[in-house]
């Protein structure tokens, strides 16, 4: 069978002296795919990206590009385009000079350089800024120029380290669409680092969740969202509640005081964590004498949806309802919580 693996990361570990940044990373990146590395701050995302780019040497393991070991190739010979968090545009060069820099190093003729710069400026929809100084650009324009500069060299891999984190929400949203469009247009294999899960969900063909220097889950965004592999992933992805509960004597899950009709492969009586998303819980008014009721401690209407915090036993559960819901719950109301068994994930309590 012909595999379509473009980059193969094999058992890569990295420590900085006593600090272990990455342990045993195994990843296969498909040709032409858009991969997002997602994880909380300090989990080793940047380190992994820098290892791919060649700026850090892995302590253990190796990288295979199209089956060939590239671990010993220095970064300037790898031909990977990189967009840095600070963008790192060259302030002493014009926009055109920035974009043409990689081509100049490749000894492209002046005509080739000019044509490629023009082509890229058209692609990023900024055809008239070639002669501007970098300092005379807006944040979003700089972003596009940095992307164009990296793409100008027709990179084998396109690497981005939190390129959009400095932009405001609206611009970030536009740039995400733009980025995805550019990636599809050029068909370049892309690895993007982010700690923003919405951004990752929106861009990625494959989502790689990193935490504590390990790959916690690598799958499509939908399956990471629907079936988180463990409670770390569930906690990090989306607005999920992690509810501490136990498996009842009959082997069924007890959740919010009710038995859920769902088989779980944990022994009766064991403590488990259940990940359940705010939007998958529904509330009903409860009678004052009803057992297994929670109390609404916070309510807000965000226009697109409503949100409540319900205090149940000693936990606070976040619940989200659509704006069209008829029922209003006020702070202090007694409620029962019900969930759709198809939409919960159960993990052994750590």
């Amino acid at each position: 069978m012909v595999t379509n693996t473009h980059l193969n990361i094999e058992a890569v570990s990295k420590s900085f002296g006593p600090v272990t940044a990455l342990t045993q990373i195994d990843l296969k990146i498909e040709r032409g795919s858009f991969v997002c590395l997602l994880g909380p701050s300090g989990c080793g995302k940047t380190t992994l990206l820098r290892i791919i780019a060649g700026f850090e040497k892995p302590t253990k393991g190796r990288l295979l590009l199209d089956g060939a070991d590239i671990s010993d190739i220095p970064p300037h010979k790898r031909g990977f385009g990189m967009v840095f968090q600070s963008l790192a545009l060259f302030p002493h060069m014009s926009v055109a000079q920035n974009i043409a820099y990689g081509l100049k190093l490749r000894k492209a003729s002046a005509k080739e350089q000019r044509e490629r710069v023009e082509e890229l400026l058209t692609v990023i929809e900024l055809p008239d800024i070639a002669d501007r100084a970098v300092s005379a650009l807006s944040g979003g324009q700089r972003q596009r120029v940095a992307i164009a500069r990296a793409l100008a060299i027709k990179p084998k891999l396109f690497l981005l380290d939190e390129p959009l984190s400095a932009l405001d929400a609206k611009l970030r949203d536009n740039m995400q669409i733009e980025l995805r469009r550019l990636q599809q247009k050029f068909g370049v294999t892309t690895v993007l680092v982010t700690h923003d899960q919405t951004e990752a969900m929106m861009l990625a063909d494959e989502l790689v969740v990193l935490d504590h220097g390990k790959v916690q889950q690598a799958a499509t965004p939908t399956s990471v969202y629907r079936q988180p592999a463990n409670s770390l992933v569930a906690d990090f992805i989306g607005a999920a509640n992690l509810v501490r509960t136990r498996v009842g004597e009959n082997g069924r899950l007890v959740l919010f005081g009710n038995t859920v009709e769902m088989a779980v492969d944990h022994d009766p009586g064991t403590a488990v964590n259940v990940a359940v998303r705010a939007e998958n819980i529904s509330l009903r008014s409860a009678q004052a004498d009803q057992e297994a009721a929670g109390r609404v401690v916070f309510a807000r209407d965000l226009g697109a949806f409503k949100e409540w915090l319900v205090s149940f036993e000693d936990q606070e559960i976040r619940v989200r309802g659509s704006a069209s819901d008829e029922i209003e719950f006020q702070v202090g109301d007694l409620v029962t919580l019900t969930v759709d068994p198809a939409r919960i994930s159960v993990f052994a309590a750590s």
């Binding site: 300037h76 031909g79 600070s86 545009l89 060259f90 820099y101 990689g102 190093l105 060299i153």
Partner: peptide
């Protein structure tokens, strides 16, 4: 910043270049 040097390197410049 180191990043600006690394940007040049990622575009194909040797560290000295």
């Amino acid at each position: 910043s180191v990043e600006i040097e690394e940007a040049a390197i990622s575009l194909g410049a040797s560290p000295l270049r």
